[in-house]
């Protein structure tokens, strides 16, 4: 199907999906990765110092 095409994926995500069950919560691993990435990026954005721009503020 899609991987036979010239610009198909290098990593095939089209196979059987993986899912996680926690109590009543069901999540696909792909969505979980996205959600964790969001939390990590948000935390990093707060933690990593923001470079001061060229000029002076004092």
């Amino acid at each position: 199907m899609m991987h036979s095409l010239l610009l198909g994926s290098l990593i095939d995500l089209g196979g059987t999906g993986h899912y996680i069950h926690w109590g009543f919560i069901q999540l696909s691993v792909a969505n979980l990765v996205v959600i964790i990435a969001m939390i990590v990026v948000f935390a990093l954005a707060i933690i990593i110092p923001f470079p001061r721009h060229g000029g002076k503020d004092k």
Binding site: Y19, A30, V34, I35
Partner: peptide, 25 residues
Amino acid sequence: HQHLQGDQWGMMNETGNYPGQAWLW
């Protein structure tokens, strides 16, 4: 089979291992 049913939280999911509409959680 693709975990897309309503009682599988399927609204968030995409076919295969692609991320879906996580914003519908």
